[in-house]
Design a protein around this nucleic acid. Structure first.
Length: 452
RNA sequence: GGCGACGUGGCCGAGUGGUUGAGGCAAUGGAUUGCAACUCCAUGUACCCGGGUUCGAUUCCCGGCGUCGCCUCCA
């Protein structure tokens, strides 16, 4: 079974399942107010790999990932551009899914929208108010964090430490808050802002309340895994947890956080810094599998540097894998070599060691190529490579699908010319094929042609 | 200021208290080949600095330097 690093206990431990054979996962999705950046792409790919691996392991995976379509960033942009906020959320969500498809990730099994859960959020906040864990100020309803015993669990800091460490920072709404860390559950709207009714006044729910309500509603108490980017650890996930705990509910059993994508200088690629890199651009300009390969070759808890050179390296690496897929197309189907599949399983079960998994792939590719060259049986090795790549969502392309009769005839003509030692003709045919965008490979068994 | 992560060859990136520190890309030499591509084989003074623990540290501890993240926008 999968062993994963758990942020709450800060150790790698087995992902215990609430129900045998079924995995329930909540992944904090995007706030839809801008196009997905490269960092979002890591999220899409990382959890797609997790999900595919679990499914490959024979588990029934329910992956819930929300769309935050109620948020100040959205409303601010709507106001700035003077258009309906729904137009922004609709458009951005559309782009999000285009990008998700583009990086080869499956869409989640459930996609709740914050805007569909207002009633439930109001109800939950009401419960917190009834229990006197939440209180009202001039600008909203706040959660009193000091009433949550282990508040700070995911921050790795106690409230006192946070306060002491906070130094001279200005605390928003401090004058009316009972503790600087108290966070907003319901924020009152100003005139003209989008608003929903509540017993405390018109307003909108706080981000942290959105995710607790949706996760508990769809997955129920004690679901298996809650995940997201490292920056969500605190305060977002801590605050989600705090609300659940305050209501006496069991929340996520395991916490997973992935590291960032950084730029050439090692700085976080975030929409807040201004060095925004658009994910759709990346997919448009490069082989979409390249990003996945880059991510697969580093660990999900390590920062990944992304830049031109790194993508280029991945593209080159992919070319080798595709060349293999092309050769492998002629190998008869077989059962994957068990030892290799088991090595892969073991690597992945060890906190999703995808770099190890990829090294297994490359080593197996080499072994299979050697076997093919020697005329030995490569079938189980080929099958193992395909099996593993399938489990990782890395699609290899033999590129032979659209070789039509005319192209095949040219390849034959090329071989004939070579047999006749008419190398001028052979070279001419090859140049012609290459000009049409084909990769021409001539071995002692003849010429094969595939898409570049 | 508090907390956390990290610093590995030309580039990326795993990993480990001890004969030979994955894998990918690039480079060089070679095999195969009419040539090229593909494939295969071979090669490279790589573990930030200074202490300490140890028979032995890249791996553990302390300090330093550097980078990054979080400390109520954030994947």
């Amino acid at each position: 079974m999968l062993h994963l690093y758990d942020t709450a206990t800060r150790s790698v431990k087995e992902l215990a399942l609430r129900e045998p054979g079924k995995v329930s996962i909540y992944l904090c999705g995007p706030t839809v107010y801008a196009p997905a950046h490269l960092g979002h792409g890591r999220q899409m790919v990382t959890y797609d790999i997790l999900r595919r691996f679990l499914e490959w392991s024979g588990l029934d995976v329910r992956l819930v990932s929300n769309i935050t379509d109620i948020d100040d960033n959205i409303f601010n942009r709507a106001q700035r551009e003077d258009r309906p906020w729904q137009e922004i959320t609709t458009k951005c969500e559309e782009m999000w899914w285009t990008a998700t498809d583009g990086v080869g990730s499956k869409r989640p099994t459930d996609v709740p929208h914050a805007s569909e859960y207002i009633d439930e959020m109001v109800e939950m906040i009401g419960e917190l108010v009834d229990r006197d864990i939440a209180y009202t100020t001039d600008d909203g309803v706040y959660m009193e964090v000091e009433q949550v015993d282990d508040y700070g669990l995911l921050a790795f800091q106690t409230l006192d430490d946070m306060r002491a460490g906070g130094g001279d920072r200005e605390v928003f709404g401090a004058d009316q808050k009972r503790h600087p860390a108290d966070f907003v559950l319901w924020k009152f709207s100003k005139p003209g802002e989008p608003a929903w009714p509540s017993p405390w006044g018109e307003g909108r729910p706080g981000w942290h309340s959105e995710c607790v309500v949706m996760s508990l509603d769809l997955l129920g108490e004690g679901f298996d895994l809650h995940c997201g980017g490292q920056d969500l650890r605190f305060p977002h996930h801590e605050n989600e947890r705090a609300q659940a705990v305050a209501l006496g509910k069991t929340f996520a059993n395991h916490w997973m956080h992935h590291a960032f994508v950084v730029d050439g200088e090692g700085e976080k690629m975030s929409k807040s810094i201004g060095n925004v890199a658009n994910l759709l651009d990346l997919i448009e300009h490069y082989d979409q599998r390249a990003y996945r390969l880059v991510l697969l070759q580093s660990h999900y808890r390590s920062p990944v540097r992304l830049g031109q050179a790194i993508i280029d390296q991945a593209v080159a690496s992919l070319a080798g894998l595709d060349a293999f897929a092309s050769r492998a197309a002629n190998v008869a189907p077989a059962d994957p070599a068990p030892a290799i599949v088991e090595a892969f399983r073991a690597a992945m079960n060890d906190d999703l060691d995808t770099p190890k998994a990829m090294s297994i792939v490359f080593e197996t590719v080499r072994a299979a190529n050697t076997a093919i060259d020697a005329g030995e049986d490569a079938a189980p090795l080929v099958a193992a490579v395909m099996e593993i790549c399938g489990a990782l969502g890395l699609e290899l392309s033999g590129g032979t699908d659209d070789v039509d009769d005319a192209v095949a005839a040219k390849a034959q003509a090329l071989d004939q010319a070579r047999a006749d030692k008419d190398f001028a003709t052979a070279d001419a045919i090859r140049a012609e094929l290459q000009a049409d965008g084909w990769l021409v490979e001539t071995t002692k068994d003849g010429t094969t042609v595939r898409r570049a």
